[in-house]
């Protein structure tokens, strides 16, 4: 995660950049979530390289339409690739099939290579579409939209609490790290470092629990009864329906391309 966030960078709320997200930002949050899910399901179902390249084009098209900073978003996507690169590199060698070339006596197969390309295309297309369609929402709006989409209320509350307190706790973490630094702490591979980090985590958790007790007290004082009233309401406009229809057409097109 810290690859994504330097100490200065803010988390979620303004990690994505500016507020207006071009064409995408205007659509109803609910429809964006639903479309992202449909697109993910369709893309995972695709099995030909041509259709997957088509899906990748759709995602990149969405990225351009959203006016997100292209380079930063693609960099973030590439970070995910660094996690799976080992698996992808291993695939040609572990999958039996026609030999492409041999490294140190291990044959690499064409089938394995295609499988690896398939997985890479699917993963990147889905995650890019998700980041563009849903990641550009305000985190709180995401909670409201999920509530309107009939997610369990408790889960939405938990999500909202988490979103609300990530930034607070991150500031606390940075403050504790600052205090450690000022006392000459430099992390290294040694027992002292591990003990210090362990205490740091323990302290963060103890403080978090105590903070949550204060929060609960304050909420009860204001008449909290286990329900948080979510006020934001959404309305579907004609443009939203057009967008939904267009996206479904594109998904059907991808499925059709897959059958060819």
């Amino acid at each position: 995660m810290a690859h994504a966030l330097g100490p200065q960078a803010k988390t979620l709320a303004d990690a994505g950049g500016d507020t207006a997200y071009g064409l995408i930002g205007d659509y109803d949050p609910r429809i964006r979530i639903v479309i992202a899910c449909i697109f993910a399901a369709v893309t995972v179902a695709l099995s030909t390289i041509a259709a997957l390249i088509g899906a990748m084009f759709v995602s990149v098209g969405l990225l351009l339409a959203s006016r997100l900073p292209v380079r930063r978003t693609l960099k973030r996507m590439a970070m995910m690739d660094s996690f799976i690169i080992f698996m992808l590199v291993l695939l040609p060698f572990s999958m039996p099939g026609e030999t492409m070339f041999t490294v140190f006596g291990f044959p690499a197969s064409w089938q394995g290579l295609w499988k690896a390309v398939e997985i890479a295309l699917t993963a990147n297309a889905v995650i890019l579409a998700l980041m563009v369609l849903v990641g550009t929402l305000e985190p709180v709006t995401l909670g409201h939209a999920l509530h309107k989409l009939r997610c369990p209320e408790l889960l939405v509350h938990l999500l909202m609490f988490t979103i609300r307190y990530i930034e607070v706790l991150r500031e606390e973490y940075l403050r504790l790290r600052g205090a450690m630094k000022i006392r000459g702490f430099r992390p290294g591979t040694n027992w002292h470092t591990y003990r210090s980090f362990g205490y740091l985590v323990g302290m963060m958790l103890v403080r978090a629990i105590e903070r949550s007790e204060r929060i609960l007290g304050a909420m009860k004082c204001r008449g909290f009864s286990g329900r948080i009233v979510l006020l934001q309401s959404f309305s579907m406009t004609r443009r939203d329906y057009m967008f939904a229809a267009m996206s479904c057409t594109v998904c059907l097109g991808l499925l059709f391309l897959d059958f060819l």
């Binding site: 307190y165 990530i166 706790l169 973490y173 985590v201 978090a208 007790e213 929060i215």
Partner: peptide
């Protein structure tokens, strides 16, 4: 609920520690 939410947030932050 508040306890779980705050803990969920702290584990999110703890996963930032390298």
């Amino acid at each position: 609920i508040p306890t779980a939410g705050v803990l969920s947030a702290s584990f999110f932050v703890a996963s930032l520690i390298h």
